[in-house]
Design a protein around this nucleic acid. Sequence first.
DNA 1: CATTGACTAGACCGACCGGTCAACTATACT
DNA 2: AGTATAGTTGACCGGTCGGTCTAGTCAATG
Lengths: 200, 200
Amino acid sequence: MNSTPDTRQRILSTARELFHANNYADIGIKQICDAAQVQKGSFYHFFPSKRDLALAVIEDMADDWAHGFVHEAFDQALPPMERLDYLIDAAYYWQKAAKDIEGRMPGCLFGNLVLELSTRDDVLRAKLSAVFDKTRLRFEETLQQAVETGALAPLDTNLTAQAMLAYLEGMILLAKSRNEPELIQHLGPAIKGIRIELSH
Amino acid sequence: MNSTPDTRQRILSTARELFHANNYADIGIKQICDAAQVQKGSFYHFFPSKRDLALAVIEDMADDWAHGFVHEAFDQALPPMERLDYLIDAAYYWQKAAKDIEGRMPGCLFGNLVLELSTRDDVLRAKLSAVFDKTRLRFEETLQQAVETGALAPLDTNLTAQAMLAYLEGMILLAKSRNEPELIQHLGPAIKGIRIELSH
DNA sequence: CATTGACTAGACCGACCGGTCAACTATACT
DNA sequence: AGTATAGTTGACCGGTCGGTCTAGTCAATG
């Protein structure tokens, strides 16, 4: 059955790394193939085009993101609002680690791709939007639980969740512009204070 | 003296538009020249390279940004905190207008460039960072005035200003991912509630 | 009128891009 | 054993990229 060793996954992983550490346009298929030790023909056996690779990378990363980073950060065992501290911490350490290795803060792959590609490819844009929406749900359920436990006064959980996600992405963007992961630590705490009231 | 008509500025403006509506990598020099009705030779007479054009575009836009959008939004005649409402409004209408014309929300040119290029070109990154810092100052002076007038309890004006800027950029990013400028309207009001306390 | 120098014109260049293809190999099933 | 099929190889393609270069225009100077 499993005749394919792991070529496809190897392409996927190295492409993800390269896209994340650089950007989409600057990374050529040749470069991905060399890094993954795969020939071009093999690449096109698994992916019809670079664009389809991008779609696959987004899905692949979204899975890891959901089951790794997000899952850990939104640990159900923790009191709801504490999860947000945990999230900020996780974001910081991740960016810090990447910077220590590469010398530059890569930022959020999804955010990067949104700003680079969503004006030119609507399908990609929609896919990235869906990833954000899935993440937003984790914020929202956290907020709902915080409201239920009385840790938070009632508010518009949907919009507030979006606002928090926006703030997270914005912090990462600003930190990337300064190549200073520490900015996430400094600005992070304010995420808990963001509120959008229920309308009427 | 001024023998040059406006060729340089025409290149600059069309490059800015094209970079903003698309992205840096996708726009070739040929395309800029065609749109600006300029020949390649002329282009390279004014700009040594595409990268130098990018630098010039950032400066050019930063000036307009400072004297236009930011200047209007941070109108000194308005009560400090009201300026933030004005800013959100301005951001929304700008993105909305662009979407109505192009069909797609372009986002913030500076934010776009940061995420696309700051991992590969540190000088560009620094330049963009400086633009953000200049904008941050307008937030900060607004906050200081709000504290002075008693509209706001004392807080860390520097970090809060950065947090607000991050939130603004994050909103725009999220809105772009959904191609919905309206998101800025919905999330915008929360910007006034962002606070980072003075440490110790 | 000659010279200068900023500016324009556009053919041209090598490099590299995403993508194709025909030939080949290794495995799986009959 | 025979054959289909999944996977691999790497030469190859047309097009476009950023950038170069030579020839020439034109207005201001002497």
